[in-house]
Amino acid sequence: MTGILEIDSLSVRIGPRGPRILQDVSLSVAPGEIHGLIGESGAGKSMIGKTVAGLLPRGLNVSEGSVRFDGKELTALPRRRLRKLVGERIAIIPQDPLTALNPSRRIAGQITDRLVHTLGWDRRRALLRAEETLNEVSIRNPAQTLRSYPHELSGGMRQRVLIAAAFAAAPDFIIADEPTTALDVTVQRQILQLIRAMQARHGTAMLFVTHDMGVVAKLCTRATVLYAGKVVETGTAEHLFGPNPHPYTEALIGATPRYDRPEDSLRPVPERVIEALRAEQEATHG
């Protein structure tokens, strides 16, 4: 199977000889799938998306491995070419809808920027598309929303605007970096429903970063579980939430709180699972 995104033995280091924050990561995202990236803080899940988008913080570098997007090797591209490719074909839905929008600019400009500056559309056409996309994400009064400033919108509305901005340019690939973490649960559900509906309609492949096993279960086709910068396993949702996932995956699911069986949830991850996982990673990655 050839995925639209193929990551092979990727390692990312701090500085030229520093510690590796991603080690030997391989995964493949098939066209049209939502691929979950799950792990606890420090597992490196956000770093994978940042590597693909060419947004690694200063001082972090790809030291080994390859990232192929639609057959093109991204790690070999000069920074400017990478930016251009990402601008044209990959979109990002960020975590914090408040800081992702410039507070002193109207929504219209922030949605059309990419269309006008990267894709070279004329302003009128871009504005029309922006309005169309806002309609698609169930914003009731698109024309008025386009004229608003971010602070005039609620958290859920802002996240809808960001989803619209991501889909407006009809990207081939979307990286969603914990897009619902800052939201209330009832809003989270609506946003997840929206992301699923938009993704299905446009057939966009997606990398969805999250720390919530529940979100993976409800949203993702497949997912990759990470621990300490290394892949624990990749599997379909049926496998991960089925009878035989990796013990660490099973432990993460067991630690998730569940109102439907309160006594049989919130189980601390057993020491031995972590020890066995470390030994296993030691053996495979050295």
Binding site: S138, V185, T186, Q188, R189, Q190, L192, Q193, L194, R196, A197, D212, M213, G214, V215, V216, A217, K218, L219, A237, E238, F241, I253, T256, R258, Y259, D260
Partner: peptide, 16 residues
């Protein structure tokens, strides 16, 4: 109903 339980359930994301 808004809590995503870690169980497979296709219906959870339907009927927005």
């Amino acid at each position: 109903a808004a809590i995503p339980l870690p169980t497979l359930d296709d219906a959870w994301l339907e009927n927005a």
